[in-house]
Design a protein around this nucleic acid. Sequence first.
DNA 1: TGCAATTCGCTTTTTATTCGCTACAATCTC
DNA 2: GAGATTGTAGCGAATAAAAAGCGAATTGCA
Lengths: 201, 201
Amino acid sequence: MAITRRQKEVIDFLSSFTQKNGYSPSYEEIASGLGLSSLATVHKHITNLQNKGLLQRAHNRSRSIDVLPVRSGKKGSDRLPLLGRIAAGKPVEAIESAESISLSDIIGNREVFALEVRGDSMRDEHIVSGDYVLVERTRTAREGEIIVALIDGSDATLKRFYREGSMIRLQPSNTEMSPIYAPAANVSIQGKVLGVLRKYA
Amino acid sequence: MAITRRQKEVIDFLSSFTQKNGYSPSYEEIASGLGLSSLATVHKHITNLQNKGLLQRAHNRSRSIDVLPVRSGKKGSDRLPLLGRIAAGKPVEAIESAESISLSDIIGNREVFALEVRGDSMRDEHIVSGDYVLVERTRTAREGEIIVALIDGSDATLKRFYREGSMIRLQPSNTEMSPIYAPAANVSIQGKVLGVLRKYA
DNA sequence: TGCAATTCGCTTTTTATTCGCTACAATCTC
DNA sequence: GAGATTGTAGCGAATAAAAAGCGAATTGCA
């Protein structure tokens, strides 16, 4: 993350002040610590640093600045830092430990391939045209899992899997579509869906 | 991609300066560090290196250069073969070339982090609770992009971004929710959503 | 009410970007 | 092989934008 010389000085001051005193400085104390005469300048610095995600602060609260630990953010791997949870109307809820996520978390050791989805048969499942489904190659599935199935040896579809006696019900996740019933012998499972990947243009 | 001797010197200088100081050098400092007398030359070097994907930089931002770690071109165990397209009721349509997909295809060179989504404010966008959004850290967004925004410095939300004069409209993708209108000054963009990753239990 | 935080308008300093120009080496084309 | 083209490397000057700063007025917790 980009940071200017002055911003680093501000961060350093905040860290060492908080370290030494056990509470964060007031704007007045920051100003005198940095040789500034206007609180507006201090405020601008704090705001900028907050926007860069380097610290947190509560609105209009005294001494509420919290310096966030540096995210080492190493690149080169497909592993992404998982910074927190986000919910409408609420602040990002920071996650305790340094978690991360990657495709490996989905793939594990399994044999996995991807398929690009066309059509809307899984729309209610929030899988839409253009998404990639990550499929583990397997012959079996459990009740309710989303699978890639081959019906009568020719038609491949993406459906939820339900066993009903000697028959199999393949349930689309789109209320406008009807389920498919077929004898177990005619349905060949190609794999089960482990995850979904979507890329915006 | 090829790199020249001079370009390597530039990269080396950038790395060691940033390592030593905790912030990246200004163009002036780069010039004196490399014995150049024109900032235009520095600018050209930086631009070339950025085009080669060896560093990142924000437009017109002070000291915003980020040297990217070398992509060691590992075969990528996280890369999945893309076998074809699947459509409801049709056979899997094989894809011509041996394509593949991986998180790198979404991430590129950008600085990306993940957030776990809570709540249903983007349900109509097919982003639901439990999904991970992949977010590029950026300060700006274009009309209609999905962004992570900080409103009044404290509330983070996931919304579509629209500019309306001096105001900004943040549009949830859920017909039951109302858009948020706020002055541009009160909205701080944390990043834009590049993709979505979902993992089934 | 009092104090700290926030906002407003404005100035200065620092930094990045763009333009026009020269020069050299490697490559492509005829 | 000569000529054209492209990419790297460099200069200085003009412009534009962001970062950093100020003082005063306002807002908002406690």
